[in-house]
Design a protein around this nucleic acid. Structure first.
Lengths: 312, 312
DNA sequence: CCATAAATTGCACATCCGTGCATCAGTAGC
DNA sequence: GCTACTGATGCACGGATGTGCAATTTATGG
């Protein structure tokens, strides 16, 4: 590039970024059109005559967050540190979830809630600054023994308390013994009324399960090992809200589907904010699936898991 | 500031400056209003979370240029290196003048031209890329012996050739022996026609003189030493287009004024672009005066002089 | 030299962005 | 508890900015 042009571009950049002149003023001052100033500024940025540097505070995992958002076209990713003590990780995740909720929740709106160990632990630790009058609705049938706290009703109740709102309950299991039982229960008004509330849900908070030996789904006795093996055989990597998906996030039809009570995946995809919380290596494939399938808008995870998600 | 807020601001900054999202998109993505995004970005810049750095090529004296522009509210300052060999300085100044003219000149418009050693040397060395069809008009009477090349007519002619245009001539001296002589000459149609052309001038290129022993004004015999002493006594620091000014750039009435033929200062101030070229320490006070008095829009000088201009 | 392609330019438009203002939530003092 | 103050918020407006387009200029090939 011509040296005089370079000098001109430098001068424009200086006036624009360091001085407080707008493009019109610079154009008039230097005897060129405003359009040209705009284009030269663009050139200056592209040629790195102007560099924009971010002093991002350390330890924030912005790189990981940004990387995941970019790679999967995700709305927002929140990464917390991976602590030795899992409780610390839960606490950190709870803090990020709280701040996210404070941003997005509107007074009195409906929150859909899933189930599981992760969700329980995060819900227990969440803190928000004021009362939001939320209505917290289960969007899945009951799973896990009552008393362990991982049941959706209990998590909904905890969260409603923390957010200063009310919670609804679902009075049916998530996994029935037969298709017929599921049909009867699902059509019962008790269940229907709760499930229909999910139509109003603008924000859903969900966990994900893998289908390995450590999954609460298995440990709590809802499924048998051979069923997991069968699911694996279909290419399934885990579930999101009891919707079994493959590594591309596609729901895979299977013989268990007919026995489940939960809001199905295609309806979840219509919810404005779907927040998934998930840690640990075993969950990486299912989280990836959820991301690939564009099923969720927000992911909360920890550093290690985030790295694994990004790792090819 | 709250750590969660900081994280949010970092994220916004990243999406805005490194990603290619606009404020609306970021707001939607993160669940906040666009206004808030705008204000957080402002905060990020003020708190230096976002830093804008200019990679200004070295050796350009941008600091000096910017300093003078800022201190005196000058439109544009162009600084060239101070070479041992004055010819080099003239050459560099000619290059900057040329590029400036290429920016601001419109085809067929009028250029007003002064006189002097500096102007002669710069005009001799100027190069432009194409023909502008300029009309070059003297805006001062003749000064300096013909043949030395410092006469306004000769400079006008040189410049017109370089710019691919035509030049006009003035057929009267700049300094007359008496007020009566000046009146007669000035009212003569030959002079009047040329001087009236100055009304059309949109760009003027001028030198400045000090009133010391090295001034061409003195050396060429237009003024006597005792006249300079008299002018100094009035607080005059030099002249711009034969308008004697004090250190604040104010025109100072004096007994010589009546004998001069030149476009007066108040009319010069109405010209859109007034470019002054001046080097050397002796000219610092008069250049400062011209700057203070807001008489000019553009100053072309060299590093050393620029430093002296800025030095308190 | 002309003809064609490529680049530059300014205009006009649509979008984008900063900011005054009114409103609302949070806080401190009584 | 009430009131007054401070700060945060969103709306709406107008100014600031980027960009498609057509016209012009410049470079390239014949």
């Amino acid at each position: 590039m011509d040296s005089e042009k370079l000098k001109l571009i430098s001068k424009i950049s200086r006036l624009y970024y360091l001085g407080s002149f707008n493009q019109q003023e610079i154009g008039t001052k230097l005897g060129i059109s405003r359009t040209k100033v705009s284009r030269y500024l663009d050139l200056a940025r592209r040629e790195k005559i102007v560099e924009i540097h971010l002093n991002l505070p350390e330890g924030q995992f912005s790189e990981l967050e940004f990387g995941i958002e970019k790679r999967f076209g995700l709305g927002e990713c929140l990464v917390v540190a991976s602590y030795e003590d899992k409780n610390e990780t839960f606490k950190a995740a709870a803090a990020r979830l709280g701040s996210k909720l404070e941003r997005i929740l509107e007074r009195g709106s409906y929150i859909g809630i899933g189930w599981g160990t992760t969700l329980k632990n995060v819900a227990d630790r969440i803190q928000v600054g004021k009362d939001y009058g939320q209505k917290v609705v289960p969007i899945i049938g009951g799973l896990g023994k009552i008393g362990t706290g991982v049941h959706t009703n209990q998590i909904a109740s905890t969260l409603a308390n923390k957010l200063g709102g009310i919670s609804y309950m679902i009075h049916s299991p998530g996994v029935l013994d037969s298709r017929e039982a599921r049909e009867i229960i699902e059509n019962d008004s008790n269940t229907r009324e709760t499930i229909e509330l999910s139509e109003r849900v603008e924000t859903a908070i969900l966990g994900v399960s893998d289908i390995g030996p450590q999954s609460t789904l298995l440990k709590s006795g809802n499924f048998k090992e051979e069923e997991f093996e069968y699911l694996k055989g279909l290419g399934i990597v885990g579930d999101i809200n009891l919707n079994f998906i493959d590594r591309h996030g596609r729901h895979v039809k299977n013989r268990l589907d007919g026995r489940l009570i939960r809001v199905p995946l295609d309806r979840i995809k219509k919810i404005k904010n779907v927040i998934v919380i998930g840690f640990e290596k075993r969950k990486v494939p299912v989280i990836r699936g959820a991301l690939m399938g564009q099923a969720i808008n927000t992911l909360i995870t920890d550093e290690e898991t985030a790295k694994n998600i990004l790792g090819s």
